[in-house]
Amino acid sequence: MTKNKSDKRVALVLGGSGGIGKSVIDKLVEQDYAVAVHYSANKGKAELLVDEIINNGGEALAVGGDVADEVTMSQLFDNVISAFGGIDVVVNTAGIMKLSPLSTLNLSDFDQIQRINVRGTFVVSQQAALKLRKGGSLINFSTSVTRTSFPNYSAYVASKAAVESLTLILARELRGKDITVNTVAPGPTATPLFLSGKDEATITHLSQATPLERLGNPEDIAETVAFLAGPARWVNGQIIFTNGGLA
């Protein structure tokens, strides 16, 4: 863990210890960012990633906590600022997905999805709005299923539709602060979250659903995040469908 103020741009990646978050971390480190790797439960995995980054000459910090707890997130943001001197980019990949027909979904599962995906995004976005430096970027995450409307995704898509609306409004509320707010909406991407509970036939079908005839890779999504985090200063208040042409 670094304890020195960084001269680099600083990124905080929520859910940074695995899946798309890990690829985002790798891409931003490649582009010479100092990074804070957030975890909710897997502290060991986050710390291993941080050690790897530091051993390769980078700057990194592991930070843990419940994204839906406003006190925890406020302290987490302050800890990152204390360590690095500020925050320039917040990427919120943290989220959960549970699939079920609406008619049989357990409402406790519904409540958990909304708490993490909606309240968590709201809390993180609130902290980002208050604490990002000028020239900063907030990047939230949705899903292309808000447009494709696949069966069994009702609770998950409801949460992500809320994220999209939150993003569009916050971008306008931050007028004059030189902070961009966008959402990335991946299509079928080969991550543990996506692959969990799907049989081989379903995965094969989804891999053929795009004109590129493959699943996305976490690296594909990280490329879009890196663009929004850095050079894309004229992209603001947008939902970026990173899905290989999925209709």
Results as ranks from 00 to 15, higher is better:
Thr2Gln: 11
Lys3Trp: 14
Gly16Lys: 01
Gly21Tyr: 02
Gly21Gln: 06
Lys22His: 12
Leu28His: 11
Leu28Tyr: 11
Val29Trp: 07
Glu30Ser: 13
Glu30Asp: 14
Asp32Val: 09
Tyr33Lys: 00
Val37Pro: 11
His38Asn: 14
Tyr39Thr: 04
Leu49Lys: 07
Glu52Ser: 15
Ile53Ser: 01
Ile53Gly: 00
Ile54Ser: 07
Asn55Lys: 12
Asn56Val: 01
Gly57Asp: 07
Glu59Tyr: 01
Leu61Asp: 06
Val63Ala: 13
Val67Glu: 03
Ala68Val: 06
Val71Asp: 14
Thr72Val: 15
Thr72Lys: 10
Ser74Met: 12
Gln75Lys: 15
Leu76Glu: 00
Asp78Arg: 04
Phe84Val: 01
Ile87Phe: 04
Ile87Glu: 01
Asp88Asn: 15
Val90Thr: 06
Asn92Pro: 06
Asn92Phe: 02
Thr93Arg: 01
Gly95Trp: 05
Ile96Cys: 06
Ile96Gln: 09
Ile96His: 04
Met97Asn: 14
Met97Lys: 08
Lys98Val: 13
Leu102Thr: 15
Leu102Cys: 15
Leu102Gly: 13
Leu102Lys: 10
Thr104Val: 14
Leu105Gln: 14
Asn106Ile: 03
Asn106Ser: 07
Asn106Pro: 01
Ser108Cys: 01
Asp109Met: 08
Asp111Ile: 03
Gln112Asn: 13
Ile113His: 07
Gln114Glu: 14
Phe122Arg: 06
Ala128Trp: 10
Lys131Leu: 11
Leu138Met: 12
Ile139His: 01
Phe141Trp: 03
Thr143Cys: 10
Ser144Thr: 13
Thr146Leu: 11
Thr146Arg: 10
Ser149Pro: 00
Pro151Trp: 04
Asn152Trp: 10
Asn152Ser: 13
Ser154Met: 06
Ser154Cys: 09
Ser154Asn: 08
Val157His: 05
Ala158Tyr: 07
Ser159Gln: 08
Ser159His: 07
Lys160Thr: 05
Leu166Ile: 12
Leu166Lys: 05
Leu166Pro: 05
Thr167Gly: 12
Leu170His: 05
Arg172Asp: 14
Glu173Phe: 01
Arg175Thr: 15
Lys177Cys: 07
Thr180Arg: 15
Thr180Tyr: 11
Asn182Tyr: 05
Thr183Leu: 08
Val184Phe: 04
Ala185Pro: 05
Gly187Lys: 02
Pro188Met: 02
Thr191Arg: 02
Pro192Tyr: 07
Leu193Glu: 10
Ser196Gln: 13
Ser196His: 09
Gly197Trp: 04
Lys198His: 10
Glu200Val: 09
Ala201Asn: 12
Gln208Gly: 11
Thr210Trp: 06
Pro211Trp: 00
Gly216Met: 07
Gly216Cys: 03
Pro218Trp: 00
Pro218Gly: 03
Glu219Val: 11
Asp220His: 06
Asp220Met: 06
Val225Tyr: 00
Ala226Cys: 12
Ala226Leu: 10
Phe227Ala: 12
Gly230Val: 08
Pro231Leu: 12
Pro231Gln: 14
Ala232Met: 11
Trp234Cys: 02
Val235Ala: 12
Asn236Leu: 05
Gly237Phe: 08
Gln238Trp: 08
Ile239Cys: 10
Ile240Lys: 01
Ile240Arg: 02
Gly245Gln: 08
Leu246Lys: 03
